[in-house]
């Protein structure tokens, strides 16, 4: 599957329902539930960045939910994914553990990193999420090394490296792709190309808006896809996953758009270049709406079922948030205890 970049970056395209042929109903419902959960969890975070209850920097990925969900649904628990600053979706797609995320963002001991990491340092080893960090590009070589470890394990596990189009301006992407290619490492590189690095549009940062050119330069198989089509990406990954597990790296560039600013709760329509006029148009390419409409049109999910799913998720999110607010902070000795193993 390869779609034309010039069509992908035009928000007037790809607004209609998606093709869900050949995917089981239970899988479609999984996809829908995960995406709604991520959307609503991030809306809750947005609300409390604004209310002031959340102090740590929160990089929200509202609008980009489909990518992490598609990847999560082809992963094994023993695969190892690494994220970046905007990784709530990658984490929740694997575990749906909104309590763990909320507690972490509030700096509470019950959080996935015991409150030591906040939004930018989240981890869930049991479910294959091995860590996210906000230094741009920093987990690309780490995921590459996780791929080396997986290859040595000889169990067919793979590593997943999530990064954005901004990371492609870091030299380490080139170094890592070169290494994965020459060493035949089982790594799935996922570039979430949302066209922006902080405030600056990709057209003002790179001579081409297609980052797949870096994969091509390193002779890594690659695909350019609609990042707001969860089923399309899922089908692509299902068709590639065996090859990846057989020690062949793959690069998926998924075009998408973030509805919020680089950090925090605001839309930032007045921040940066080329944003204000496109945000409204991009919201029409909503990955959740497109999946639901397809399911409805195909007669496998009703409006009523959808409403009840929404309210069930709302309830979970509100419960988890309230519990997280009540949870305890780390004890004072925790400042020094985790520095070293002893």
């Amino acid at each position: 599957m390869n779609q034309e970049v010039k069509e992908l970056i035009d928000p007037l395209n790809f607004r209609n329902s998606i093709n869900i042929d050949g995917v089981e109903k239970s899988m479609l419902i999984d996809m829908l539930r995960k995406m709604i959960l991520i959307r609503k969890a991030e809306e809750k975070l947005s609300e409390h960045v604004e209310s002031g209850k959340i102090k740590c920097p929160c990089h929200l990925g509202i609008g980009q939910e489909a990518i992490g969900v598609a990847v999560a649904l082809v992963m094994r628990k023993t695969d190892r994914a690494f994220g970046a600053h905007r990784s709530h979706a990658h984490f929740l797609a694997l575990n749906e553990n909104t309590y763990s995320l909320f507690a972490e963002v509030l700096g509470k001991y019950d959080g996935c990193s015991h409150g030591m990491g906040g939004s930018m340092h989240i981890v869930d080893n049991e479910n294959g999420f091995k860590g996210s960090v906000p230094i741009v590009g920093a987990t690309i070589p780490i995921a590459t090394g996780a791929g080396l470890a997986a290859k040595m394990d000889k169990t067919g596990d793979i590593a997943i490296s999530y990064f954005g189009d901004g990371s492609c301006e870091e030299g380490v992407l080139h170094e890592s792709l070169n290494m994965a290619s020459i060493m035949n490492l089982p790594v799935l590189y996922v570039c979430e190309n949302n066209l922006f690095a902080s405030h600056l549009h990709i057209d003002l940062r790179q001579p081409s808006n297609s980052t797949s050119r870096f994969a091509k330069a390193h002779q890594i198989s690659n695909a350019t896809v609609d990042g707001n089509d969860v089923v399309g990406m899922y089908k692509l990954l299902i068709s590639e996953i065996l090859e990846i597990r057989n020690n062949k790296p793959f690069y998926m560039e998924a075009y998408t758009y973030r509805w919020k600013g680089h950090v925090g709760h605001r839309d930032d329509i007045d921040v940066g270049v080329k944003r204000g006029d496109q945000l409204t148009a991009w919201k029409e390419r909503d990955p959740i709406k497109r999946l639901f409409v397809a399911m409805k049109d195909n007669g496998i999910y009703t409006e009523q079922e959808y409403e009840s799913l929404l309210s069930e998720i709302d309830q979970k999110i509100n419960n988890d948030w309230n519990r997280a607010e009540m949870a305890a902070f780390p004890q004072e000795e925790f400042l020094l205890n985790p520095v070293y193993s002893n």
């Binding site: 090394g145 380490v172 890592s176 070169n178 290494m179």
Partner: peptide, 12 residues
Amino acid sequence: ATTGATVGAAVC
């Protein structure tokens, strides 16, 4: 990248 890969293998 090779140092990062070393870190990644250690994490795994």
